[in-house]
Deep mutational scan, measured.
Amino acid sequence: KLPPGWEKRMFRSNGTVYYFNHITNASQFERPSG
Rank of each mutant, 00 (worst) to 15 (best):
S27V: 15
R12M: 13
F20A: 04
A26H: 12
S13T: 11
N25Y: 07
F29Q: 07
Y19L: 00
L2D: 15
P3S: 02
F29K: 10
K8Y: 05
S13I: 09
F11G: 13
E30M: 02
R31M: 10
N21E: 06
S13K: 11
G15Q: 07
E30N: 05
L2F: 03
G5Y: 05
M10V: 13
F29N: 07
T16N: 09
R31S: 04
P32L: 01
N25G: 15
Y18N: 03
H22K: 11
E7V: 10
N25W: 04
G15M: 06
K1Y: 12
R31N: 10
L2V: 08
K1A: 15
P4V: 08
S13M: 04
F29A: 13
A26S: 11
T16L: 14
W6K: 02
P4F: 09
P4E: 09
G15R: 04
P4T: 06
A26I: 15
K8L: 10
T16G: 08
N14V: 03
I23T: 08
G15D: 07
L2M: 06
E30Y: 02
L2E: 15
R31D: 11
N21R: 00
L2Y: 01
Q28W: 05
N25H: 15
E30P: 06
N25A: 07
Q28I: 06
P3D: 03
N25Q: 12
G34T: 12
P3T: 00
N21Q: 05
K8N: 02
E7K: 06
Q28N: 03
K8I: 13
F11S: 15
S27M: 15
R31W: 10
T16I: 15
Q28L: 03
N14A: 09
L2W: 03
A26R: 11
A26N: 09
T24E: 05
H22R: 11
F11P: 04
H22A: 11
N25R: 11
F20K: 01
F29Y: 10
P4Y: 11
S13H: 12
M10P: 05
N14I: 06
Y19Q: 00
F20L: 02
V17H: 10
R9F: 05
W6M: 00
R12F: 08
F20E: 09
R9D: 04
Q28A: 06
R12P: 14
